[in-house]
Amino acid sequence: MDGRGGPEVLRHGEIAEPAVGPGEVRVRVRAVALNHLDLWVRKGVAGPKLALPHILGSDVAGVVEAVGPGVQGVAPGEAVVVNPGVSCGHCERCLSGQDNLCPEYQILGEHRWGGYAELVVVPAANVLPKPQNLGFAEAAAIPLAFLTAWQMVVDKLQVRPGEDVLVMAAGSGVSVAAIQIAKLYGARVIAAAGSEEKLEKARDLGADEGVNYSRPDWFKEVRRLTGGKGADAVVDHTGAAYWEGVIKATAWGGRISLVGASSGYEALTPLSHIFYRQLTIFGSTMASKSRLYPILRWVAQGRLKPVLGSLLPLARAAEGHRLLEERQVFGKVVLEV
């Protein structure tokens, strides 16, 4: 990426091979998945002061090519999944298992060079063995989306068996993961999306009900499906356009976990609904690195699965950005390297 703007600022070219330092590993990238974060960085909404050129890409699967001094437990030739959250590793937050609250926290592809490349260098703590039942493209579709969804569903919302969970923007990578994780924890899932096609795919993935939020007063349908109660917990990253409806779709005493604002940051919040109906709103970003361990175990057992919406070569990254921006895919857009 050599500028800020539309997909046309993405360039395919040659750069120097990155050096591997103490405690680091160099991974030969086999696949890298796209996220909306890539779009925000490209536009300058996220990381507006980043030096250019910059390499995007948070979600990487590949093969360890080299290890730096002091690295143990990882060897060249191993197939790995890269955890995109990088932290200092020694502060109070990191040592308490809250490394995504580290003052020095960075996300691969946002704050440091990422995986739209043949090689990427990361701390050794950020690589885990690739599940043997997955190809590289499927493995690349896991980290950021599933980590984000796991923290929302499990750590923040603490979803329990029998609860009604509303998952907004059901076709996105995070929501595809959230649907599966909520079902894993015994919830009844109501998927919300802007097209019947995406809702049908969400049902195929395990969602129990579907609501089309392109319709007026869509939140009333959520309440109807829950016997007038509303959703006990909500996974949301849709932003200003749907925020008021999300609040009205939530049950008394319900919880909302918010991880993004795709349609805009300036939202109207009817405060009476928050205090009178005793709602709880959780902000959420990524998850502790430790959470990738149970996620990959469930993936290896076939209980969680990545969903590929489109597979393209790295040289067509701009096309991948357009697909994501125009919401033309259900699941992840992945680039093969």
Rank of each mutant, 00 (worst) to 15 (best):
G194E: 00
Q98P: 03
V64S: 10
L34P: 03
V29S: 09
V127L: 10
R223F: 02
E244Y: 06
R4V: 12
V176L: 04
P69Y: 00
G173M: 05
K198T: 07
V29Y: 12
Y116V: 11
H90A: 04
H36F: 15
K130A: 12
I190R: 00
R223G: 08
G89L: 02
R255T: 05
V337S: 12
V174E: 04
P53W: 10
E65G: 06
P313C: 05
V334F: 07
A192I: 01
A19M: 06
R93I: 01
S262M: 13
V121N: 04
N100S: 08
R322E: 15
V60P: 11
N133Q: 09
H90Y: 10
P161Q: 05
N212K: 00
A149F: 01
V45C: 03
P161V: 00
A33G: 15
A66S: 14
W252I: 13
A202F: 08
A117K: 11
A169E: 08
E326W: 11
V29K: 10
G210N: 03
V45P: 02
L205R: 09
G227N: 07
K332R: 15
L101I: 01
R203Y: 00
G186T: 04
N126T: 10
E24P: 03
G73R: 09
L157D: 02
C91R: 05
T280A: 10
L128I: 01
N212V: 01
A261L: 14
A267S: 15
A315C: 03
L296I: 08
A61L: 13
P123L: 05
A61Y: 10
P129W: 10
A139H: 12
G173S: 11
H273E: 14
G320K: 08
P294C: 10
L184Y: 07
D99C: 00
V329D: 02
T148W: 05
Y265W: 14
R160C: 00
K198R: 14
A287P: 02
F275K: 05
N126Y: 10
L324R: 04
G44Y: 04
A207P: 00
K49Y: 12
Y293S: 13
E138T: 07
L134C: 12
V333H: 11
R277I: 00
G309L: 02
V259F: 14
P131Q: 09
L50S: 13
A46G: 05
P306L: 08
S290H: 12
S262V: 13
A31W: 11
V60N: 11
K220M: 12
Q328H: 00
P53A: 12
S263T: 15
L199G: 07
R11D: 05
K183F: 06
C91Y: 04
L308V: 05
V165H: 04
A300W: 04
Y116G: 06
E110H: 10
A287S: 15
Q132K: 15
V29T: 14
A169S: 14
G57P: 11
V154Y: 08
A233Q: 06
T250V: 06
L56R: 08
Y105Q: 03
D232E: 13
E118S: 13
P7E: 09
A240V: 07
C102R: 01
V25L: 07
D232C: 02
V120S: 09
V259E: 07
G206H: 05
Q301I: 00
Q72L: 07
